[in-house]
Amino acid sequence: MTGADVLLLALGAVAVGAGALVVGTRHLVRAGLWLVVCLGALAGDYLVLTAELVAWVQVLIYVGAVVVLLLFAVMLTRAPIGPSDDLDRPGWPAALVGGGSGLGLAVLLVDAFHWSRVDLPVAGTADRLGEQVFRSWVLPFEVLSVLLLAALVGAIVLSRPEIGRPGARSAGTPAGPGRPVGPRSDADPVRPAPAVAVGEEGA
């Protein structure tokens, strides 16, 4: 057991424990915060495994962007603050599939690697990664940027359903004072945002 092993064990225990809390807690917001702990422990794992750039990308994109997006979604769907009782379905099929796949993979990997030892490569450089990205994997890299653009446009179109409909010129201000009257505002099922609708009911 070297120092790297001890670090990997500790960070792995933190990651698995936090992951169990993500899928087990009854508080929606706390699930997102435990996800931060889990992803941070995994970033530490990457650092120990001498993948520094991946570790910092993990911190920036996952902890910085993805979790914030998820927490925004939790708030926008008006999640209750306290514990919720209706978050879970009956557990045994999920436990069967999840436990089966997790333990099966663990047994497979233990059988493949036993307690063998590997020397870590030299730390502190992203040379290998840069060489790989810009030599062997240039085309997938560029295709990935196109995919990101497509996903961005797709998300925008999804969240603005009035895009692409005939006569949707003044659609920039939904439920505002310039809201178009006529058959569209009645027939359009997507138009009223929930917050506006509830506010009108209360008034």
């Binding site: 070297t2 992951g19 436990g99 997790g102 663990a106 063998s116």
Partner: peptide, 20 residues
């Protein structure tokens, strides 16, 4: 470095994700 430690961590995390 024993590669089995991060491998088993990853397997357990995958199981937890599938369960969730």
């Amino acid at each position: 470095m024993r590669p089995v430690i991060p491998y088993v961590t990853a397997a357990l995390l995958f199981g937890l994700g599938g369960y969730g």
